[in-house]
């Protein structure tokens, strides 16, 4: 199932301006990631589409991040990464 969100031409500076190597501080990176991804959480959590794979492809592409950075860095709750209140 295709992703209803077009991640190709989004503005990734919300992440790339705050999450930088070689340190990749977890707090900065994960907060930035959540700020970017949370508006699309419903589509990202729907694993019957390819939204999350697509989004990570572009995040890694634009930010030149090592594979798995956010998966390895970010942990919140039992259920997942808690999004900031709107």
């Amino acid at each position: 199932k295709p992703c209803p969100v077009n991640f190709e031409f989004m503005n990734y500076t919300i992440i790339t301006s705050r999450c930088k190597g070689p340190q990749y501080p977890a707090k900065l990176c994960c907060d930035a990631f959540k700020d970017f991804a949370c508006p699309y959480s419903d589509d990202l959590n729907d694993l019957s589409n390819d939204c999350s794979s697509t989004m990570f492809s572009y995040i890694n592409l634009y930010g030149n991040y090592p594979p798995g950075l956010f998966a390895n860095l970010c942990r919140d709750d039992k259920i997942g990464l808690i999004c900031p209140a709107l």
Binding site: C38, L44, F56, G68, A71, N72, G80, L81
Partner: peptide, 20 residues
């Protein structure tokens, strides 16, 4: 209130299945 979250299932798509 029901809070939004990004599931670990979605986050796991950040992992690549190679380089072990």
């Amino acid at each position: 209130t029901n809070r939004r979250y990004i599931s670990y299932g979605a986050l796991s798509k950040n992992n690549v299945p190679c380089s072990r």
